[in-house]
Every structure is written in structure tokens, then in C-alpha cells.
Simulated scan of single mutants.
Amino acid sequence: MINNKDKVAVVFGVRNDSSIAYDVALKLHQSGCKVALSYVEDTKDEVLALMDKAGMDPNYASQVDVRSSEQIDQFLNKVYKGLGPINYILHGVAYGNQKVLCYSLPGSTEPAPSYLDIPFEDLMDSFNISAYSLIRICRSAKELLAQNASILTLTYNASQRVFSGYAGMAINKAALENIVLYLADYFRGQHIRVNALSAGLIMTTSSGAVSGIRRLRKLGKLAAPLGNVSADDVGNAALYYFSDLSTNVTGNLHFVDGGFNIMGVPNDEE
């Protein structure tokens, strides 16, 4: 087991126990980290209950809208003053409404919005939460990070390949991956590493909004050499980046998708 005794980790993006971010937070806690979670108004009770069940200290959990620099500042400073310099940050936040993801609302007789008709304002709000928030978090954390700190975000292969059900969110993931590269260069002077995990499609609350999710999971089972992955697989990979094992790894896009990203078509043997 990786030993993170007394290190401090901040996790953005836990919604419930199906969240990839929660699996990462749990593994950080089990490895010895002091873990602080953010939540939003409608997830507060769920997140605090999960922390209590896992034996995490809830005193440093805070409600944070990642569109607000002030709220991020307050959260990170609270953690820094109470627990010390921050070693690890997970950015696991993403959001896109049905106009961005181009799907019809349940029970609606209206057709799904067209990709060409994605409203600019909706896309920009989605970008603000899903991509630009990583810059905002890093700006707030810059002076609060420990030496050799590690920052990690979660992305998806729709940034590079077409998954029609992902629509406008793919724009955000492409931007997010580019942001990782530039942040990795920006933080070179502090020897802080910034990386991204590109997870396979996992059944979470957020992925439930993706049109055709079950068909995509079936495709992943057929196409990926190792089949579909779980949040546990992604959490294990994250722990590598949240440890001294990855001290000199930065700007990396790490696929945890059973090898789906290397395939052109499913293997006929399946």
C-alpha cells in the first residue's frame, strides 16, 4: 500500500458513492491522507454522510461553487490553516446541461437539440465548470501547495474521438487536456506536477446524462482489450499520481479504459 501518512488531499467533484472522485478520495484516506471534500448545495448531505461512513474528518469539508474564486479561496485556505500545506488536489468536476449534451428531457416530445444549435451561453457555463475551474483552483492553491505537490484532473476520450452522445462536453474535455499541458509547464518552477486521467465510460450519476450510455458500455466491453473499467480501476491509477512514485511525471494523459483508446474496431473474436 502507498504510504501517504499525514499528507493533505483536497478533492473536488464528489456527488455520491458512484462518483469516480469518491473512489479516489476513499483511496487517499485509506493510504493515510487527511482528506477534505467539496460539495454543492444539493449534495451536501450525501457527501457528509459518505465522509462519516468512511471515517473522514468532515470539519474541513465545504460547499464550493467552482465558478467562484472566493469560495475556492475560502475552502483551500481553511484546509491550509487547519491541516497544513496541500499535497494533492483532484479536480473531478464536470457539468453540461441537456442543451450542451444534446439530449431530450425525459417525457419531452421535442427532438434532442442539434450540435449546431448548442447555445453559446450554456456551453460557456459548462466550460467554466468543467475546464476553466481547474485554472481557477490552481490559482487559488498556488501559494498553499506543499513541495512536490500533485494536481490531477479527470477527462474522457471524447476529447479526441467522436462520441455523439457527449456533444458539447467533448469541447470542454479537449480544453481541459490542453489546460493540463500549460499548467504542467507553468508550475515547473515549483516542481508541482499536473496530470490527467482519461477514464473509460463508468456508470456514474454524471455519465447517466450521456445519450446511449448503455450502448457505449456494451461497445467498450467488445472493443477494449481488457473490457470496461470501474471507478476502482481509476482510483488505483490516481493513487500513483497521488504518491511519491510519480514525482517526475507531469503533463501526462493517462488512459484507464481497458485499452479502448487504441482500437479502431471491435475484435471479431468477441
Rank of each mutant, 00 (worst) to 15 (best):
V93C: 14
A141W: 11
N172M: 00
A146L: 10
Y88H: 06
I202F: 10
V10A: 14
D185L: 11
A49Q: 03
N87C: 06
S68Y: 09
Q160M: 11
A112Y: 00
M124A: 10
D6A: 13
R188Q: 13
P119L: 04
N261D: 13
A61C: 14
N87S: 08
Y103R: 04
M263V: 05
S207T: 14
Y60W: 10
N4Q: 02
V24Y: 05
V256E: 11
N248M: 07
N261E: 15
I20K: 07
P119Q: 04
G168P: 04
F187T: 03
L222Y: 03
A224L: 04
A184H: 06
I2N: 12
Q74E: 05
I129H: 11
N195W: 05
N16D: 12
M203C: 07
R193T: 02
V256F: 14
T247Q: 12
R217E: 15
F242L: 02
L183V: 05
A21M: 09
L48V: 04
M1L: 07
A146W: 11
H254L: 10
N267R: 06
D57W: 00
V8H: 09
Q98F: 14
R193E: 05
E269M: 13
G92Q: 12
F260Q: 03
G13L: 12
F75P: 00
V249L: 07
I262A: 03
V256Q: 09
Y88D: 02
Q74Y: 02
F242C: 04
N248A: 11
R136S: 15
S159M: 01
A112S: 00
F260N: 03
G189L: 13
M203W: 09
S114Q: 13
A237N: 13
K221I: 08
G165K: 00
H91I: 13
S206K: 12
F260I: 08
V64P: 10
